[in-house]
Amino acid sequence: MTHHNIDSGKQTFVEEGTEFKGTMTSSCPVAVRGTLNGDIKAPMLTITETGTVIGNVEAASIRSEGVLAGKVDAEDIFLSGKVRDNTVIRAKSLEVKISQEKSKLEVTFGECMLEVGEDPAKDAKGGDQRNAGVKTDSSSSADEDEDDDEMAA
């Protein structure tokens, strides 16, 4: 990601109805309305409500309103939609808006790991590094099972 084209106005689209399998590296922002199954590296990634991204994701900024799964590394992430099982999200900053309606979920999390910002245990009493039951296993892979695509109402 040495050469970013964020300001050029150019954008790479994976349109609805398109399924892309493989590795994608782009210096432009990428918007996924279809399905991207594989690894992606881009300065900015947008996953719309119809979009799905499964794999290793590396981007400075991610905005996901669709389905996200795999190993996700970003500086800044905005999440709604669905995060599938066996997903690991590492970010400097994460935002998830809480739904105003009590019966509605803004985001549905499967079994996943969130590592956001500096380690909170660093400033714990005595400086003990604590991760008790939280395993920071980065080797988890995306659950490619399509069964859990149903969004909670």
Binding site: V96, K97, I98, E106, M113, L114
Partner: peptide, 19 residues
């Protein structure tokens, strides 16, 4: 019923979410 989550920018997390 699935937990409703909300995270503000700036929060620090080492969170494992399970069913």
């Amino acid at each position: 019923q699935s937990t409703r989550f909300g995270f503000e920018r700036g929060c620090r997390l080492r969170v494992q979410i399970t069913q």
